[in-house]
Nucleic acid binder design. Structure first.
Lengths: 114, 114
DNA sequence: GGCAAAAGAAACGCTTGCGTAACGATCGTC
DNA sequence: GACGATCGTTACGCAAGCGTTTCTTTTGCC
């Protein structure tokens, strides 16, 4: 079920959503952090630092720092993998789900307005 | 011509675009910077620091700093307003237009894949 | 038991961003 | 020509991000 957008619509959608998200929420995530957050919530677990680093094409410390920041914002959580204690499993949180739910609503509503 | 998206489609679109943009381009703009950039390119000029600050609901130094950064990336340019020399007019650049054109293509292509 | 490999975190020096407050330049008006 | 208002920038102290390198813990294999 593809979504067909004109060039103008595509950018206007991005514009409207970015603008409204900035106005509504003071948490100013970088594009990288946003990509990590969405990856965690939209792709089936488990998620590890190493896996996310590979998926995004960035180094591991980038992921560790992003998780530090988003963790302190309550958007994600970290748990040691008990089966292999070298790994850390990144967990979703209620607040993170809520954050993305609001973002989804924003995208839908701004899409309708185009 | 509204764009109707399901909640799943909306977030998957955001996910795919963010992820691909991170992989393709090392310039990691914040959501604020992205909103500023799109505002400049999609809304008719003139654009001033004061106007952008009001539109985004942030302070003026936030705009100044974002323009510093995006200016050094070549995405925007600044020119003194000769009619009222207190003002600064923010100008578009070829590189900025190219950046957004690529972003638009990305959105369109990822939308089609949904 | 010993040891290389792997995962994630921490350390380092640096850059960028923040909010608040102060500043210099310019304007309009008196 | 003086003066309050406006515009954008700069300064300040601090938090967060970067890439690279190093460290700690744990694993798997001999």
């Amino acid at each position: 079920m593809p979504v067909e957008l004109t060039p103008s619509q595509a950018l206007r959608l991005w514009h409207a959503v970015s603008l409204e998200q900035v106005r509504v929420d003071s948490r100013d995530l970088t594009l990288r952090q946003m990509a990590i957050l969405l990856q965690i919530y939209l792709v089936p677990p488990p998620h590890t630092v190493r896996g996310l680093a590979a998926t995004l094409g960035v180094t591991k410390p980038v992921i560790t720092r992003a998780l530090d920041t988003m963790g302190s914002l309550g958007l994600v959580d970290r748990v040691r993998d008990e089966r292999d204690r070298r790994n850390v499993i990144i967990k979703r949180t209620v607040e993170g789900a809520l954050y993305l739910e609001k973002l989804g609503d924003l995208i839908i509503n701004q899409g309708r307005k185009l």
